[in-house]
Amino acid sequence: MKLSELTRPWSAFSYGFLDESAKREIRRRILKAIAVPGYQVPYASREVPIARGWGTGGLQVTLTLLKPDAVVKVIDQGADDSVNASSIRKFVSRVGGTVETGDTTQATLIQSRHRIPEEKLREDQILVLQVPNPEPLRPVQPDMSVAREMHADADYGQLWLILYEQLVRSGRIMQGASYPSMVNGRHVMTPSPIPRWDVPKLNRADHLTILSAGREKRIYAVPPYTSVEPLVFDDVPYRVEDHQDKACWRSGVRGFFMNELPQEDGSSLYELSDSHFGIKHIRKAAGEAVSIGETWYRNGRMAR
C-alpha cells in the first residue's frame, strides 16, 4: 500500500460539499433509520455553511443523496420563494450542479420546512423534512436520557396526558403542529412541525420520508407504506384544520391548507400555503398547459 493509493487529487470541495467520510456516516444512519421507522438515530451532524436551526439537518441529508441528475425542490412553510428556501436551493444547485424546480411533480428530492406538498408524492420521490425538535417526549421529560428509556419501553402514556389536559382546558386538542404520531405501531415520533393537515399524508404513503434534526443530531425515517397514526382518544377523532370553505384570494382555489393574511379592517384573506401549487392553478386559469398532479385532499377532505 502506498500513500498515493490512499489519497486523491486535491480539490477545493467534494461534490455536494460534504466529504465522503461525512456522507458515509449519514448513509449508515439513514439505513438504520429506515430499518426502525420512527426511531431517532444519533448522528454526527457536520458543519454546513448555514446556521444550525436553519435546516442543517435536512441539508445534510439532501447533500448526501445528491447526484447530478437530481431535481431539487426546497420548501419553507409551503413557499418556494422565501429567503431560507431560495438560499438552500441555490446552495444545493451550486455544490451539486443539480436542477432546481418549484414543481412538486418534477422533483426527485424535496427538502421541506414544516409542510408537505398538496400534490401526492410518488414512489420514486424522497421527502426530506427539517426538524427543529425531534423528541416528542420533551414536553413531559426534559432529560433526554430518560426520554430514550421511555422510547425503549414504549412508555408513551404521558403524551396522552398532554392531549387530555388540552381537551379539559380548551374543549379541543390544541396541538397545531408537531402532532405526536405512532410509527409502525412502536415508536412515537414528532412529524416535524407540519400542521395537523399534513400528518395523514405520511400514513402508508408511496414516498420515502427522511426527517433530520441538525442541531439535535437525530435522523429518523418513515419508509413507504408504513403506518403513521396520530395519537388520539377513541371517542375524540383526529381533526385536521377546517380549511375546506376557505378560498385562495389569488387563485380562487378551495379546499387546501391556507395561510391567513390579517387585514387592516380586522377581516382576513386566505392564500394557498403551497405556493407553487397556487402558481400552477393561476397559470392553468390563464390558459397555459399546466399539469396538476393528483392531490391528497379533495374538497378539504383526505381522499382515501
Binding site: 477545493a12 461534490y15 456522507k23 443523496l65 447526484k67 413507504p224
Partner: peptide
C-alpha cells in the same frame, strides 16, 4: 472553483448507497 461533477468513485458510492437505501425502504 467548485467541483460540480462527482468523481467516478463518488458517483459509484452514491449510486450504491441509493440502491442500499431503496432496498431497505422497499
Amino acid at each position: 472553483s467548485l467541483e460540480l461533477l462527482p468523481t467516478a468513485a463518488e458517483s459509484r458510492t452514491n449510486a450504491a448507497f441509493e440502491e442500499l437505501m431503496w432496498a431497505l425502504a422497499r
